[in-house]
Design a binder for these strands. Structure first.
Lengths: 224, 224
DNA sequence: CTCTATTTAGACCAAATGGTCAAACTCCAT
DNA sequence: ATGGAGTTTGACCATTTGGTCTAAATAGAG
């Protein structure tokens, strides 16, 4: 995922215009992005101040603005990273394995993400709920195409009788909804049930319950 | 909900200190609450300005502040209304009817709410995602108790063998997640599938799919 | 019609905040 | 060492914004 800093092919012509960047230049950007994610995901774009983010990242406001020209630009950069992470599990949805196995694996991957990257999930949620004027193109382009590809696979499974008939879109939406619920609505889950995904026992029980629910919906009686 | 204005016991001593309130005083409050809901649900608490809300409600900022002493107070008032609406369907979850019927009815009620009050759903979502410091007590008190009551019913159904074994909390969370997804993530649903709950055909298909999924999860083969 | 409690609006204020600028500092290749 | 590119900082500015204050307008009871 980390991009190489492009080095000039031949160092003979000109002495390698080596990055004079401060050794930790890239590390600082990451610090800022992390701080931005933390703040944006908990108080939103408008609720977070540049100064607050800078403080959390351990530098001055002015210095932050040196790395990112404006708050909006930083926000976009944070969102972009989040989107990549968010898309990852769906890309890994495996069309070649058994349907039951593919769904089981996908559900576990999404819930793992909800456990390990809840801030990313929440920021994504905030952005979508508010209308995502910024993410719209991404959703209508890459995401839509990706979903369509997976939906085709699911439909073919259905046609082969390997799973019961079900609308692929609704199926995918349901899995997204349930798995992300445990990250996005964590405080509600905690308030109502007193549990958190950080508790390994609870995590496994959520994985199992979700898998059971979806597989049952597919007409695949889970053998348990 | 609306409190009676306390009238002095005997009107003989003093002439009834009748409210001199402008006839449409209450209507204006509603206008403001509606405008607040619209703005808060689309740009969040921090993203909405008092002036903007006032403009949308058709009065001056100062006048709005006359009805609600501060932005936060208005926000709380809006949230309170939203919470009441949000809780409604769960309270109506009927313990006396057949399990399948109760779930079918509940799912339809929640989806109807997602269709007819998407702004309320989104504001609730925003608040929870951001940690709901304000709603926390409500969640840990009334909501938790209500869920516990319904969970008990579900467990008893399970014990009687009327539905398959399933963790009631996860079941409820799943229903919430799926049904609210169609309101909260409407732009994503639209971007990916091109459909909206406002389309009656789509609405019915979502209701049916969700009911099928949940009932299958309960081991109740829907007769369809 | 008058008198008073309620309502409305405009001017104003202080704090917060996004962003700019020029000066200073840190490296590193020469 | 040193010159210049890259980095960091503090001072500063314009705007937004939540909220106050005062005064005008208005509605209804008598």
């Amino acid at each position: 995922m980390r991009a190489m800093t492009e080095t000039s092919p031949d160092a003979a012509v000109a002495p390698p215009p080596a990055r004079r960047r401060r050794k930790d230049g890239e590390a600082r950007r990451v610090m800022i992005l992390d701080a931005g994610l933390a703040l944006f995901s908990s108080v939103g774009l408008h609720g977070a101040s540049v100064e607050g983010i800078a403080e959390r990242a351990g530098l001055s406001k002015t210095n932050l603005l040196y790395y990112f020209p404006s708050k909006e630009e930083l926000y976009i950069a944070v969102l972009r990273r989040v989107l990549a992470v968010w898309l990852d599990p769906l890309q890994a949805f495996d069309a070649d394995s058994e349907p039951a196995e593919a769904f089981r694996h996908y559900i576990r991957a999404k819930l793992t993400l909800s456990r390990d990257a809840p801030q990313a999930s929440r920021l994504f949620c905030l952005e979508i709920v508010q209308g995502a004027p910024l993410l719209r193109p991404e959703l209508e382009g890459p995401l839509r195409d990706l979903v369509e590809a997976k939906a085709t696979v699911i439909r073919s499974w259905s046609a082969q009788g390997r799973i019961g008939p079900h609308d692929p879109h609704h199926l995918i939406f349901s899995i997204w909804a349930i798995t992300q619920h445990y990250a996005d609505f964590a405080v509600q889950v905690d308030a109502v049930s007193g549990r958190s995904l950080d508790d390994p026992a609870f995590f496994e029980s959520v994985v199992a319950s979700t898998q059971d629910l979806i597989l049952a919906g597919l007409g695949l009686n889970p053998a348990r």
